[in-house]
Amino acid sequence: MTPGFIVGGSLAIFLCVFFVAVLLPGITAKDTPSEIFRPRTPLEEEGRKIYIQNGCSYCHSQYVRNLDWDLGAQRVAQAGDYVSDRPHQLGSERTGPDLSQAGGEHPDDWHMAHFINPRFTRPESLMPPWEFLGRERLLALTAYVQSLGFKDADARMARQRYWKQEAIKAYEAGPDANVEWLHSHVPEPWRKLPNPYPTTEAGLLRGKRIYQSFCIGCHGPIGDGMGPAQPYLYPPPLNFTILKGRGISGGILYYQIMNGITGTAMPYFKRELESEKIWDVGNYVAVYFIGETDAGGEPRGIEASYIRPREGK
């Protein structure tokens, strides 16, 4: 082969392939925004710059796949979601969750605690602490994260804001009113439902492990709501000890762990914890921090919860 043949051949192949693999998809791509799209505000754009500068995309992807279960799995990504993205931030690894629908999943104060040190809200997180960015830039970054999901995120944020007001009102009205308000959002059947599993050493150990992986950052090692995230959160994390004698039940704990309390930093855990894990951590909280538990009553109906016959239960 002559040098001319090699150079000419390489150029010809490159141009053909470039046409097929880059130009053609570029030309035929529709720049029609998807139904959730909206432009980002200047603050959100500034936050996106911070996201890019610090390489967030190397651990967080930004597209939900049709086989995902995690954060944002309610909606599979569409090409029209990305029309304003320069550069793209789709990502190639998931060391942390996908963020394409992260907006409004948590209130702003949760994010502030999480960015100052991710372990404050997520004890087993591998994310670096971002305190060095300073408050101003963290607020911009939070604004960007809260915009992920565009109109869907806005709807979630509106809910966060509304319920934040309500939660603050209830908190400021004192422990009695607060607990009553919290319980009033739990449907009646759940309120009456005792924890169906008996209190066992094994169950408490499992509950403790879940508590340390998910709860300890806000509610603290002794359940008084004084975890390391506490200074950043308002209303502050619940002090479990005030629940004693105020009509708490296994069902209330389960319902609130499962669904979270919108507006406060308490997230829902239904994606993360299966049924028995929620009962176990609820009973751990009930036994050690609240000091009263309704766990392990006689089965009253046809439920098939496990019992320990030799203890007569």
């Binding site: 998809p25 570029g26 791509a29 090409a79 990305y82 029309v83 304003s84 320069r86 550069p87 793209h88």
Partner: peptide, 27 residues
């Protein structure tokens, strides 16, 4: 590849837009 892939004609972002940018970037 380097010239097109880095979108050298766009000094600010070094990218084009949206999904085509992802396709170009992985090309």
């Amino acid at each position: 590849s380097y010239f097109f892939g880095n979108a050298v004609w766009a000094p600010q972002t070094g990218s084009i837009w949206g999904m085509p940018d992802a396709i170009l970037a992985w090309f």
